[in-house]
Design a protein around this nucleic acid. Structure first.
Lengths: 227, 227
DNA sequence: CCATTTACCGGCAACCTTGTCGGTTTTCTT
DNA sequence: AAGAAAACCGACAAGGTTGCCGGTAAATGG
């Protein structure tokens, strides 16, 4: 039932028309190549950056002709729009899957492994995923591309809303002080995003010290929320 | 004399061959167009992203022929290498200029405006500059471009070294606990980098709350360093 | 003042990308 | 089984990008 609720939440940002929505073979197959194109697009995005993303390359990677590609996505921007939905959905799913899996395993009496500490760990893990890498490219490119921003910004806000609902549900103890939980979440996301980029420069040791400090901050906020 | 010391520090990362290094007109003029090309390259980078950066566009912006461009930078990667030095130098200069200017103005008795709090404010300001925007594009692109990374990573490490020396000099009170100062600096940089990217999604109010939390963290670290 | 070095110019070839479109194969419908 | 519809294919034109190179103008220095 936990999984059921998660699926319900995910539906809010899930792009309609996934393969599982169809019974008939044609639509199912169509939807399948659509997904394979989007996957290929993410790969191409991560490797070449947003400006370097070429529909040609995407078709090649997906093992699909340029014609078929055009059938599903009439032009580049349509592909990008599809990719945005795809990336946000996968990113959220990735994290939530890991999270519910971990919650089942941990010992509730272990003080060092409180749920919010777990969440910080898992978020760091999710930040290092391919989906997040794609998100990063999109977010950075959207800063100076009006056309991209037009599609990206609303999707990002929708993602944020769903995310906060999920956090609210996952941490009922914080419910008395939602602004503190939001702060903890915001700090975690911003800090780990920055860490992802700066990490290779400053080295592992310093990364770990920063992570420890972050855990400390989140713990303090959790304490403050209890009162 | 503060400025003199700053210049000395800057020299460590300053690209040699700036216009002020030459007396003869020809070399001086040459160096001037070189700089204008690099400036144009930064603009192009910020607007089009790393992959979209075209030497054509750069020449157009700089008001220079493609031939002249080729004379200064034989190919694209040479231009990029020049740009990296340029960006790091300007970024550091931007921050240090602001910092020494502010230190002159503040009231040493004002508790709310301790130097490290000022530094956090100013760093946030510097993060929103054009130079940092360029740094961001380069850092993100370098994650999946070996050729770029080869030029970018060493420059980033050199920058980090000089940065830490500068901080050590600016905050002698922290000298007893250099690892705490480094931590404060790292947290500030990572958090504000993430904030720059996420800011447009989460809105001003939450950004401010995060900044306040950051100031709190830095203050606590400063306290801890005193003992 | 003349030779040489330096800065700068603009066109060319090879390549890649995007969007478009006529035509073919596969699946669905009746 | 036959017609309709959806999925898919490959080629083409227009335009942009890169690297290269022969040639010109200006500055330097002997």
């Amino acid at each position: 039932m936990v999984a059921a609720r998660r699926d319900m939440a995910l539906r809010k940002i899930r792009p309609s028309g996934g393969p599982e929505d169809f019974e008939r073979w044609q639509q199912r197959k169509s939807s399948l190549t659509r997904e394979s194109i989007l996957d290929a697009a993410v790969d191409s995005l991560v490797e070449s950056g947003y400006a370097g993303l070429s529909t040609n390359d995407v078709a090649r990677r997906a093992g699909v002709s340029r014609g078929a590609m055009h059938h599903h996505f009439p032009n580049r921007i349509a592909l990008v729009r599809g990719m945005i939905e795809h990336v946000f959905y996968r990113r959220m799913r990735h994290f939530l899957d890991d999270f519910v899996a971990q919650l089942k395993v941990i010992d509730p009496d272990d003080e060092t492994l409180q749920p919010h500490v777990i969440a910080v760990e898992l978020h760091w893990h999710s930040v290092q995923s391919r989906e997040f890498e794609a998100y990063l490219r999109l977010a950075v490119a959207a800063r100076n591309d009006a056309e991209l921003a037009e599609a990206f910004d609303p999707a990002a806000r929708r993602y944020d809303e769903v995310w906060l609902e999920e956090m609210d549900h996952a941490f009922p103890q914080w419910r008395s002080a939602p602004e503190l939980m939001r702060l903890a979440s915001d700090v975690t996301q911003a800090l780990q995003l920055g860490l992802l980029i700066n990490g290779s420069t400053i080295g592992e040791e310093r990364v770990r010290a920063i992570q420890d400090e972050l855990v400390g901050v989140v713990k303090r906020l959790a304490e403050a929320a209890k009162r």
